[in-house]
């Protein structure tokens, strides 16, 4: 379903607040795999998967029940869990065949699985800010483009980086 990401941590947790908050704080692109603590094999009784985009929960799926979205959160149920947190490029989460049926509202995992209303609210707020930013906020962009000195810094940093990497990567001939 999801390409394999880089395993960040694997542990048994009795509650999910810290893990969800950690993902949010580091603006994680990736996913969490949740299994009952007692499961001997990770997928013996099925596992729940929650994906994160910039730290905000976006999709949920349960492998045993084959249900997605809020229903998958119900299938994941109460802890303690064995939790694996994986980092994955955001593009890889833009899955072919992704359907709305997998989507979860941003705050719902914190609400339903962690019972942490404050974290749910914080997650919803950050998700709303992200959506605004995606919409472009033309004023902020124009302001950015008016800052000629800042733009020149970006360009000259990139030129220096390109030159430094030309040595490292053997692109000297191209320069």
């Amino acid at each position: 379903m999801i390409p394999e990401g880089e395993l960040l941590r694997s542990r048994v947790v009795s509650e999910l607040s810290d893990s969800l908050e950690g993902a949010l704080d580091r603006r994680l692109d990736g996913y969490a795999v949740l299994a009952p603590r007692d499961a001997i094999l990770f997928d013996a009784d099925g596992v729940g998967v929650i994906t994160f985009e910039a730290g905000v929960p976006s999709m949920a799926y349960h492998t045993e029940t084959d249900r997605g979205g809020p229903a998958a959160l119900a299938d994941i149920g109460a802890g303690p869990y064995r939790l694996e947190l994986h980092e994955l490029d955001a593009d890889a989460l833009d899955l072919p065949g992704r359907t709305d049926a997998l989507d979860v509202p941003p705050g719902m995992p914190a609400d339903r699985l962690a019972g942490d209303a404050a974290l749910a609210e914080r997650t919803r707020r950050i998700a709303a800010d992200d959506a605004d930013a995606d919409d472009g906020e033309p004023d902020a962009i124009v302001e950015f483009l008016d800052d000629e000195a800042a733009i020149e810094r970006i360009r000259s940093d990139a030129r220096q980086q390109a030159a430094a990497r030309a040595d490292e990567w053997g692109f000297e001939d191209a320069i």
């Binding site: 930013a133 995606d134 033309p138 962009i141 483009l145 970006i154 990139a158 390109a162 191209a174």
Partner: peptide, 22 residues
């Protein structure tokens, strides 16, 4: 590009890399 600050910033970097490498 997209009309967002990160996309413009990254687009500028791509341009400078391209120009640096001819």
């Amino acid at each position: 590009l997209q009309p967002t600050i990160p996309a413009l910033s990254d687009g500028l970097k791509v341009q400078e890399y391209a120009l640096s490498y001819g």
